[in-house]
Each structure stands twice: as structure tokens, then as C-alpha cells.
Computed example of a mutant assay.
Amino acid sequence: MSWDPAQYLKFGNQRLRPALDLLAQIPLESPATVVDLGCGAGNVTCFIAERWPQAHVIGVDNSAAMLAKAHATLPQADWVESGIADWQPEQPVDLIYSNAALHWLPGHETLFSRLMGFLKPGGVLAVQMPRNFAAPSHTSIDAALDALELPAAVRAGIDANKLNSPVAEPEQYYDWIKPLAASVDMWETLYSHVLNGENAVAEWVKGTALIPVLNGLLAAEDAGQIAPGMRERFWVDYCARTNAAYPRRPDGTTLFPFRRLFFIAIRQA
């Protein structure tokens, strides 16, 4: 999957808000080793390094393009190109911080237990994941794909790679994590992002959940599996659907409600 740092950071200030809200609640004074798991372009890693300047900061991401931008911004950190499912630290760490990344992975019951196992006793797992998959921003993806009437094999390939409501109910995460944790703090926040520009919600989603969809349609066009222009047809239809669900206001802005799940777990001593 190909990430575009410029597209992702188009709404950088709005995307940063939940990351900083999570960071502010972490109850550690002087961690020795901090991992930003799924660090992307490193825009949040900079704030981690600023809060704990003496810490060994490690950023992990599977996108070389994102890591190149991150390294240019924060050269003193260590940057590791790796998928989250494959990553493990050389030794236990004090903090694993992950903002808007773990929802891309399946198997959360085992994933979160695995991450807790990488912590020192008293270490912290701090996670934020979007839980907005029942909103029009995401249901419109399937609706616009349905309208294309794609060949079954093409649709199956896209469905296998796109996000499909991957985040469980909060109580499930509690049950999975609590056996390994001294304490678990959980909360949800519904943000009302104020976006500017045309097709604002579509442009937001284009930087994240639409990536595997648009890439899949482009690959199918290149392979001759679908007619040329179907990717563009999808984009126009998706913009129309999201513009109808999130209409532009008289002042030119678009309000985008977005729900996110947070939790902070402290490993048992």
C-alpha cells in the first residue's frame, strides 16, 4: 500500500489533535525507551521527543516515503522500516505509543497481548484508533464500489485490502488487555473537525482509508480487468456521496464528526 505524506498531512492540524490528546494522558515521567508504532511522517514523534528529550525514541513504519520525511524532520531518532505485525523490540521498552495505526491490522485479540508483552513491568501501551467506520465517510466507500458493478475477482481483491470495520467494541479491548495490565484507562471522543476546501471529507479519507481502494482500482485498470476511467468514476461518485452527507456550510467549511477510541494500559509490575 502506497502512502502519500503530502495527502496525509493535508489536514495535519486536525489529525494531530487526537495524537496530542493521547500523549497528554501518558503517566510516565522519564521513560528510557519510547516507540512510536506506525509513526508515519514523524509529525507526532517530534512531540514525543520534545516531551522526553532524554529518551531513546524509535519510530516504526512500513512506508519508506513516510520514514524519509520523518528522518528529515527528526534525525536524532531511530527510524525502523517494518510492518507492525512483524516488529518487535530488541529488549522490553517503557512506552509503546500508537496513534491511528493499529486499526490497519487484523487479529486484535492477539496483537494487543503481544504488544503488552514487549513492555517492561510498569511500562505503558498508549493507543488511539478511529472508530468511525459506520459513518457516511466510510459506508460511502462500499456504496460507490457497488455502483461500479466490478467483476467479482476485482471486488474481492479490493475488499480484502481495504478497511472493513476493524475496531472492536471498547469492552473487548478491556477484556483482552486487563489480564496483563495493572490498570486500563479507556475513553472515546467524538471530534467535530472543521475542514476547508472542496470535497473536504473525500480528501481527508483519500489520505487514509481510500488508499487501498484507489490503488486496487488503478491496478485493475492497468491489468485490463476493468475499463479505463473507472477509478475516476469511483472518485467522482464518492465525492458526491460524501458532499451530500457532509454539506459545505455557507462560510465554505465542512464539519466532519469523527469518533476515536483511546486507551492507556500499564503493564503489571
Rank of each mutant, 00 (worst) to 15 (best):
H56A: 13
H56W: 01
V60W: 03
D61K: 00
A65Y: 00
L67H: 03
K69V: 15
H71V: 11
P75S: 11
D78E: 15
W79G: 11
V80G: 02
E81W: 01
I84Y: 00
E90H: 02
Q91W: 08
Q91S: 15
P92W: 05
P92Q: 07
S98T: 05
A101W: 02
W104Q: 10
P106W: 07
E109V: 11
E109S: 14
L111T: 10
F112V: 14
S113C: 14
R114Q: 12
L119R: 01
L119F: 06
G123W: 06
G123L: 09
V124Q: 06
P130M: 07
R131G: 14
F133V: 09
F133C: 12
F133R: 02
A134T: 10
A134G: 09
S137I: 06
H138K: 01
D142R: 04
A143K: 10
A143R: 08
A144E: 11
A144Q: 03
L145N: 01
D146W: 01
A147M: 05
P151I: 05
A152D: 14
A153E: 15
A153D: 15
R155Q: 10
K162R: 14
K162G: 06
L163Q: 04
P166M: 05
P166A: 05
V167F: 04
V167L: 08
P170N: 13
P170K: 05
E171V: 14
Q172C: 12
Y174M: 15
Y174G: 13
I177S: 07
